[in-house]
Design a protein around this nucleic acid. Structure first.
Lengths: 215, 215
DNA sequence: ACCGGTCCTAAGCGATCGCTCACCCTTGCC
DNA sequence: GGCAAGGGTGAGCGATCGCTTAGGACCGGT
């Protein structure tokens, strides 16, 4: 390891899989810039500048500016899907698993708000092929949540008249956290995760027996 | 009246208050363009072209491109606030009024998705002064919803441990409709409004006596 | 010492951006 | 008819965009 840079906080150290060190620094700079100003308002000179390089350096590691967004979006979605699956496929009742899935998914969006913002809101700055690939990943996310809800309905724990619509609403609620969450605000990602898990359990009618809190 | 253009659908004919006819056509063109591509990716030439004018015509009615976004955002927020207040301040129990408030607010975001998208997601393309003005309007929206929930808690109809957090979640849920709603999709704005009203009533614990559907 | 490969920079190309300027056409008022 | 005012256009200015090109610094292997 060359540079021992670790950003404190909930963002952990993602992008570890991006192999050339300079390429990772550029990608990290792009995430910050895209999250702050949006994809179209970000210049390649700004990205390179944040990474401490000349504008031309970007094109050694990435073919176009859009490829940067594509890679960020794909890695980010895979990460989010992984977080969700870990919770969704654990042991336990649908109630427990749904609570943990929502809680961890929300924590990911709140804690890694910088990344999540780019991943969730810059989708249609991508070209058709890249967008199609990302949409496929999103369908997997949707299927994961819908699976838990369907199971809960079958087991009688949940009371959900419209499974598809409720799944949509649950995911919408979680994703929108990336829009409003403020790092300097009064709530921690953990608090929001716990609150949202409780709200979602109410939405699926799981509070009739006993409300299980994910701690 | 000169041009009898009316767009069919739920968008009605807003922007009626924009007085010079050419200015309204330009503004309508800007809404479409901003919603499709985002503010920064939209060129002034594109806006003028959609309105059937030359690029220079834009600057007769608006000082800058940002002024267009500012006006769209302010008028849109006022409209959304008006829709919400009409439902929130009607007669009836907090349960009924919350259901109608959510339902109509969602219908506005789904039916007028083009406008809502610009209004809700291009906020930070505005300068500091304009953004501050819009944020003030948002606080009024928040206060309106929080008022109903607080009233429901006082009357015993609702069971809400975290009023501020739940208010945030309810509004987040409604606003995010503008992101995912698809006009060609299988759900109408009315259906989504009814579904969301039901989900929100569950979130505030209003389903214990009887579930009132807004029809 | 010489090499090929990797990583990077300075300079700049063509295109396009937001916006301006000089000028024209129509309209209403006297 | 005269004429100011408002609404419009064609051309283009300076700036900046994404991206390319030519070339240099550093590296380990032989």
């Amino acid at each position: 390891m060359s540079t021992a840079e670790e950003t404190a906080g909930a963002e952990a150290q993602p992008w570890g899989e991006v192999t050339p060190d300079a390429a990772r620094r550029l990608l990290l700079a792009a995430v910050e810039a895209f999250a702050e100003r949006g994809y179209h308002a970000t210049t390649t000179r700004d990205i390179a500048g944040r990474a401490g390089m000349s504008p031309a350096a970007l094109y050694i590691h990435y073919k176009t500016k859009e490829e940067l967004l594509h890679r960020i979006s794909r890695i980010g979605h895979e990460k989010a899907l992984d977080v969700l699956r870990t919770a969704a496929r654990a042991e336990g009742s649908p109630t427990l698993r749904l609570a943990e899935a929502v809680s961890s998914f929300v924590r990911w969006h709140a804690g890694g708000r910088t990344t999540a913002r780019v991943v969730q809101y810059e989708l249609d700055s991508l070209g058709p092929d890249a967008r199609a690939e990302i949409i496929a990943l999103r369908r997997l996310v949707d299927a994961e949540v819908r699976g838990i809800i369907e199971e809960g309905v079958r087991s009688g724990e949940f009371d959900v008249p419209d499974v598809r619509g409720t799944t949509l609403a649950v995911l919408s609620l979680c994703i929108d956290v990336a829009r409003w969450f403020n790092v300097n605000g009064s709530r921690t990602p953990e608090e929001v995760g716990a609150l949202y898990a409780d709200l979602v359990l109410r939405m699926v009618g799981a509070g009739r027996t006993d409300t299980v809190r994910a701690e």
